[in-house]
Design a protein around this nucleic acid. Structure first.
Length: 268
DNA sequence: CGAGCATGGTGAC
DNA sequence: TCACCCTGCTCGA
């Protein structure tokens, strides 16, 4: 679930439910009793996201820092008894937010939050993001662009789905070294992410297929799986490329399964 | 029902 | 580069 769009969407939901309100914080499962006690019965000022990191500022001067990792979730619902392993619960009389399986859940100082943000590359979902900062580092890197896109210190919020899809949509060869990537290709991918990721925030899923390749236009059945969006290459190894018909390829790159079309993606 | 895998990241070699 | 953490799903017996 969690690439950058998930965290930005979550920040919006947490603000709607809790910003300006005094919340009850608890750790039903017990793992985060101390962080919960620190913010219990204080007002949440605001939640925000930077890349895949979520930050919640509380009136007591403390910040809650959450990273969902691969399998974490932070789900809002109407009040109900906690089910399963709820590591942290934020609650008002109207709403509860249950955190499960996070990679990180900790109380931080403002200085620590600043340091975390400073360690992250520009986030295409933030209006203050500067693609030149990422370009400077990409140019000097010998690693493949598909590895650099996943490096949160170079740009933040991109995960394995957006990586594969933005490379495909811009016809970029995933193995092109950063130092040999054209600035035109980089700016094309950045601009594309700036357009695509807000759609992910809005819809809560990653859709990247252009109208001319949509199921309706191609005479394919639309995807039934609600969790996944319509994509060109992600997890489509062995299937036909929606554009040229050749077999989608798959290899592990930077520790994750990369999916791409060897015929469509030749740009540098 | 168990194994394997997943939109992520860390820490040990 | 690998083991590992954490949860929930799918797939094959």
């Amino acid at each position: 679930m969690p690439e950058g769009h998930t965290l930005h969407r979550l920040a919006i939901a947490l603000n709607e439910a809790f910003a300006g309100r005094t919340i009850t914080a608890s750790s039903p499962q017990g793992r985060f009793t101390e962080p919960a006690a620190t913010i219990d019965q204080t007002a949440m000022i605001a939640a925000s996201a930077h890349g895949k990191h979520l930050f919640c500022e509380f009136d007591c001067g403390h910040w809650l820092h959450v990273h969902l990792g691969l399998i974490g979730s932070f789900l809002l619902s109407e009040p109900e008894p906690p089910r399963g392993q709820v590591r942290l619960r934020l609650a008002t009389a109207r709403t509860v937010a249950d955190l499960r399986g996070p990679q990180l859940c900790a109380i931080k100082t403002p200085a620590e939050i600043d340091a975390q943000i400073a360690a992250l590359g520009p986030d295409p979902l933030r209006c203050d993001a500067d693609p030149e900062v990422a370009w400077h580092r990409i140019q000097r890197a010998g690693r493949p662009i598909a590895a650099l896109l996943m490096d949160q210190a170079i740009l933040s919020g991109i995960g394995n789905v957006y990586r594969a899809e933005v490379l495909f949509r811009n016809r970029v060869d995933p193995y092109r070294p950063g130092s040999k990537l054209s600035k035109r290709s980089w700016l094309g991918m950045w601009t594309d992410l700036v357009g695509l990721m807000p759609i992910g925030v809005r819809d809560g899923r990653i859709d990247t297929v252009r109208p001319e390749h949509s199921p309706e236009a191609m005479g394919r059945p639309p995807r039934q799986d609600i969790r996944g969006g319509e994509v060109y290459v992600y997890r489509r190894a062995g299937q036909a490329c929606l554009v040229c018909g050749s077999r989608i390829r798959s290899e592990v790159l930077a520790g994750r399964n990369l999916f791409w079309c060897g015929k469509c993606q030749r740009r540098g």
